[in-house]
Design a binder for these strands. Structure first.
Lengths: 189, 189
DNA sequence: TGCATTTCTTAACAATTGTTATCGTCTGCC
DNA sequence: GGCAGACGATAACAATTGTTAAGAAATGCA
C-alpha cells in the first residue's frame, strides 16, 4: 500500500492527502538505513526528495534489487502488513526528504478507505500492478542477457542510470560491477 | 484470482464451491494450448489432473516461466482482468483434466464475494502472496547461480523435476538445456 | 583546497555458459 | 513391433561472466 503506483491514481492520492497530518517529515543523509533486514517494519515511507534502494546480504555481498525515487511509496510490504521480520533493508542512496506514517495510523486509514468501493478497486489495481511489475522483471531476467537488460534500463528508467552508483545497478542486473563496466565499454564500441 | 493460493484458504474454497455449476470440465491431451500468446483471455482454469506451463516466444525460442499442477488456478491474470492481449501462452505439459469458468461468470461471482469483508481480505492476501512469490523468484535470479537455483528447485518443488521435461526447466532457470544437462552431471560428481 | 573515501575502469586468468552438432535413448502411437 | 518425434547427454569451441588486483577518476567533506 502507499506504493509507487499511487501517483497514477489522483483520486486515491486526494484521499490520502486528507490524512496528511499523520505523516512525519524527516531529512536524512545518504546511506541512512530506514529499515534494517531482520527488523519488523513499523513505518511506511513516501519519498519527497532523493532516492532509496532495497537490498539484502548474501554470502557477504550486498545485493540491491529495487530502487525508489520522488513520490514513490516504499515499505517492506510483507513485513509491514504481516508484522514479520523484513527480508531486506531499505536505505537512502542520495540525501533524502522522506515522509513516513506509523503502522497503527496506516491501518486505521486503510479501514476507512476500504469502505469506499471505488478506492478499494484502485487499491486492488495497485496490488495487481505491483504483481505484474515483478512478473515482468522475472520474465526479463530469464529472457534477456545482462547487456540487453542494461540497454533496457537506459531506455525505460534513465533516472536509475543517472542517479544510482553503478555497482548497485550491477547487482540489480544480476551481474558484478566489473562485468557491468565491461558491458558499458562494449556499448561505446 | 482463482489462483494457486486458493487451496490455502479453505473458507474461500468453500465459497467458490457454491458456484461449481459455472465450471466446465474438459479432458485434453498433452501440448494442448489453452490460451495463445496475443489472444485475450476469456477463461480462468483450475487443474484437476495434470500439469501446465506458461511460456512466451523470444527470438525464435520459447521460454517457460511458470509451471502449474493439480488444484492450482491458472490464468493470464493481466489479460483476464484487464481484457488485454496475453503476453504468454498457457499449454498442457501432461494430459490434463481442467475446469474453467467464463469471464462473465467469474466477474459476477467476484462481485458477490467482494461484499463479504472476510473473503475480501482473503482475496487481498492471495494477491499479496502472488506478489511476494514473484518477488522472491526475482531475488533468487539475481542472487543465485543456475546450479544453486536448480538445487533449490529439487528441494522446494520436486514435482517440477519429476514431471516436467528438462528443456522446459532449463528456460525456467534462465539457462539453455545443454547447460542444465551439464549442471546435472556436475551434481552427480 | 586538500585528503580520504567511494566509484569506476582495466587487466589477467579461471570458471561458467552459449552454440552447434551428433548420437543414443525413450515414448507414444498406429 | 516398429517408427517418428521428443528428449537428454556429450563434445568442441566461442563468448561471456566471475575473481582478484591495481590504479585512475570522481566525490564528499573537513
Amino acid at each position: 500500500m502507499f506504493n509507487h503506483f499511487v501517483k497514477q491514481f489522483p483520486q486515491l492520492q486526494k484521499q490520502l492527502d486528507k490524512y496528511a497530518a499523520y505523516y512525519h517529515r524527516i531529512e536524512v543523509p545518504a546511506k541512512t538505513i530506514l529499515l534494517r533486514e531482520g527488523e519488523i517494519s513499523r513505518r511506511a515511507f513516501i519519498i519527497e526528495q532523493g532516492s532509496l534502494r532495497a537490498w539484502f546480504t548474501n554470502k557477504g555481498k550486498d545485493i540491491t534489487f529495487q530502487f525508489f525515487f520522488e513520490k514513490e511509496g516504499v515499505s517492506s510490504i510483507e513485513s509491514f502488513r504481516r508484522v514479520k521480520p523484513s527480508l531486506y533493508s531499505i536505505e537512502t542512496v542520495e540525501p533524502c526528504v522522506v515522509k513516513y506514517i506509523h503502522k497503527k495510523d496506516a491501518d486505521m486509514i486503510m479501514k476507512d478507505l476500504e469502505n469506499i468501493p471505488e478506492i478499494r478497486e484502485q487499491l486492488n489495481d495497485i496490488l495487481l500492478d505491483r504483481q505484474l511489475n515483478y512478473m515482468s522483471h522475472f520474465m526479463s531476467l530469464i529472457r534477456d542477457t545482462p547487456k540487453e537488460r542494461y540497454l533496457n534500463l537506459i531506455k525505460e528508467k534513465p533516472q536509475i542510470i543517472k542517479r544510482i552508483p553503478q555497482h548497485y545497478i550491477a547487482s540489480y542486473l544480476g551481474i558484478t560491477a566489473v562485468s557491468l563496466s565491461r558491458i558499458r565499454n562494449a556499448i561505446l564500441k
